[in-house]
Amino acid sequence: MHFFVVLIPPSLYGMLILSAGLHFNIFNPEKMEASITWVIRNMGVCFVPAGVGIMNYFDLIQASGVQVLAFTIVTTIVLMILVGWSFQKLFREFKDE
């Protein structure tokens, strides 16, 4: 049983270290803002090759594409409502100004 061995993707540690470094004034946010904005704005292209892999799953799309689509839409809406509703109900004191 490896339940207690939490395997976080290594790059996530990098993200937390960057965030902590900025928070504790080790890094200078003004110096990196422009390049980071560029990276985040353009990172979409990096997902294309992985997504093109869907061409190897045409049988799956034919057999259960509609179910996958419906499943994704329904569970996304449920998660959205769950988060929004619980935040609003549990913490009524946060009225928008």
């Binding site: 790059s11 996530l12 990098g14 960057l18 965030s19 900025l22 946010p29 803002e33 990276v39 985040i40």
Partner: peptide, 9 residues
């Protein structure tokens, strides 16, 4: 991988 790190900002 570096793109994830950038999300720290």
């Amino acid at each position: 991988e570096p793109a994830i790190v950038a999300l720290g900002f």
